[in-house]
Computed example of a mutant assay.
Amino acid sequence: MYSLTPFAIRRWAATLLLSGSLLPALAQSGHDQELFETQKRLTVGVTKFAEARTALKAFIGRRAVWVQKQEETPDQLTAEFALPTPALGSLDSLTAGLGYVLENNLNAQNLTSRLQELSAEEEVTAAQLARVEKELQAGRLSEVDRQRLEAELERQSSSLSRLRQRQQTIKSHAGQAYVTLRLYDEVSFPTGNRKVSFVNMPGVEYSYLRLDNPKPGLTSRAYQGYAIKYMFTRGKSYFNLGVYKPLVKGEEPDFVNELFVINFGQDFYPRNFGRGRRKFLNLYTSYQLGGFILNRNAEESNEFIPNLNLGLGLELIKTRHILLDTKASYFVPLYEHSRDLRGILGQASFNFVF
């Protein structure tokens, strides 16, 4: 009958220690996220960081099955934790209400085939282990052969323990999701962590310009017209190109009968009014910078005049595919006779994803 040497006993003890204490920790490490059927990554920027951090920590403490990592700095919170899969909807609702969700990725996989592979590996390893044990118990062995078999016995035992622990871990994670969450303060990270999201949203715009000081024989009381508005970021940044015509036409040679307008514009969402995340009634401020060609009745009386508009707007309807908004701004031509053409400009536009 074969009896283990002190050398073999020490190796068996090390193997049992590994399988009994270290493997559960390894199975729950970030490197073993593949042992979960569902994996989720969330990155959220907020303006009220302290309140958002408190809300998320309370959620993790209340709903997480276990927490792998939770690290805090004055302007960041990073956490990795396991969550019951049905609770992912609550997590999405919470983060959407806290700030701007920059990343929300969900990956799902079926681990049935992986369990079958591990089970097959377990059978092969168990058979190899039984073979080594049988060889150690059979007859007289040289010291070299005994040490070789003892080393192989240790390897096979460790491998078998890992395979069984891995299967157990996968089964224990059934119905759970591994979540990697990053929360940061938008004020502390104004540019480096904020992604510019480009879009392709052409549209049309109606404009109505009412002048402060119309001059009889030179300008109409008001001008109206249409423009093409092309929005290229969700920010929102855009170009518009259009023509304004007078409501009341004049026959004088110096009468302004057309404004051909081209502008670059940007809109900005206030931090305390939802930052444009609602589907209805999003408030924003705006500016437009560009110019217009002023055409008079006299064929050769054309001028290019730069202009700046500062305004306040309201998005009436906003979805992933359409945008309907309105704005009011002050139209300011940047030239010496600006008093003749400045006034209140109202605009309404419709854009859609192309």
Rank of each mutant, 00 (worst) to 15 (best):
S3V: 12
T5V: 06
A8M: 11
T15W: 06
G20P: 04
S21H: 03
L22C: 02
L26F: 15
Q33P: 06
E34Y: 02
F36W: 09
Q39H: 03
K40A: 07
K40L: 05
L42R: 10
G61P: 07
R63F: 06
R63P: 00
W66N: 11
E72W: 02
E80A: 08
P84D: 04
P84H: 03
L88Y: 02
L94H: 00
A96Y: 04
A96E: 12
L98Q: 05
L98Y: 05
G99K: 04
V101L: 10
E103N: 09
N104E: 10
N107R: 15
N110M: 06
S113E: 13
S113F: 12
S113G: 15
A120V: 04
A120W: 01
A120E: 14
A127C: 01
E133L: 13
D145W: 04
R146E: 12
L149Y: 12
E150S: 04
L153Y: 00
R155E: 05
S158Y: 08
R164A: 11
R166E: 13
H173Q: 02
Q176P: 10
Q176D: 08
V187G: 09
S188P: 00
F189W: 09
F189Y: 14
T191H: 12
T191D: 06
R194S: 01
V199W: 14
V204D: 02
E205G: 08
S207R: 15
L209A: 02
L211H: 08
L211M: 07
D212C: 09
P214F: 08
P216T: 02
L218C: 07
S220H: 04
G225I: 04
G225W: 10
A227F: 05
K229Y: 03
M231Q: 15
F232I: 10
R234Y: 01
R234S: 10
K236Q: 13
V243Y: 10
P246Q: 04
V248C: 02
G250W: 13
E251D: 12
E252Y: 00
V256F: 11
F264H: 11
Q266F: 12
P270S: 00
R277N: 02
K279V: 00
L283W: 14
L294K: 12
L294G: 00
R296Q: 15
A298S: 10
S301I: 10
F304T: 13
N309D: 13
N309Y: 07
I317C: 06
T319G: 02
K327F: 07
F331K: 05
F331W: 08
P333V: 09
P333Y: 15
P333K: 14
L334K: 02
L334Y: 12
S338K: 15
R339W: 13
D340W: 13
I344E: 06
N351E: 11
F354T: 10
